[in-house]
Amino acid sequence: MRTFIGIDFDIKVKNEIKAIQSIVRENSHKGRFKYMGNFHLTLKFLGDISENQVNIINEVLEKSAQGVGRFSLIVEKLGFFGGKGTIRTLWLGLGGELDSLNALYRNIEAGLGAWGFDKEKRPYTPHITIAQDLLLRTSFEELRKIVDLSRIPNIDVSEVSLIKSEQIQGKRVYTPISTFRLIGK
């Protein structure tokens, strides 16, 4: 089963991200836009895992969640990962209590690494993907000026989840397999 470890958002946050995404859509010729229900923050993409690995991952997540308390994030910028002629990935960059987020990320990486999971080679860049393969009608700088990120409320992070990603009737669907509360030390 295809999986990742992530943080889900409440409906108020998702609604405001959707409003930002609508502005992007209005200013684009084409693109693939994420479904509102799929807005999330990925901590680690796992890819295909076996049923046997779920217990190991859950053990790591439970221990990682015990080491980090609740924290808050803010959306602070609009950015993209490049492409040729199109924007490969348009995202919302995060700020706020990044020390706590990074501690959670490091705990998960170290815990899974001890079980033989590949460690990420690139630096962790926390972001929320809102569109892919995007061809804008306007310049990216113009788009950045008309998008008001301050309307997105703070993201209160209180749990982390192992999430299954599957294609159902042509639509990508994310379903939590297990969720662990951040309880700190």
Rank of each mutant, 00 (worst) to 15 (best):
E166T: 14
L134P: 12
L135H: 13
S165F: 07
T129M: 08
I155D: 01
T138R: 12
L136I: 11
I152N: 04
E141D: 14
R144P: 00
Q132V: 04
K164N: 13
D133R: 14
R144C: 01
S139A: 11
E142A: 05
R137K: 15
P153V: 06
L143H: 08
S158W: 10
V160Q: 07
I146R: 10
D156W: 05
D156A: 15
S161C: 14
I152H: 05
V147K: 02
Q167R: 15
I128N: 03
H127T: 04
L135C: 05
E142F: 05
I163S: 15
S150T: 15
E166A: 15
R151D: 00
K145V: 00
D133T: 09
F140C: 06
L135Y: 09
L136P: 10
E159G: 03
L136G: 11
V147H: 08
K145Q: 11
L134M: 13
A131D: 07
L134E: 10
I128H: 06
S139E: 09
I163L: 11
L149V: 02
E141H: 07
P153A: 05
Q132D: 07
Q132H: 08
D156V: 07
V160N: 05
L162M: 04
L134F: 12
K145C: 05
P153F: 01
T129F: 10
I168M: 14
D148R: 01
I163N: 15
L134C: 09
P153M: 04
E142M: 02
I168N: 14
R151K: 07
I163K: 15
L135Q: 13
I146A: 00
Q167M: 14
R137H: 10
H127G: 06
L134V: 15
L162T: 12
R151W: 00
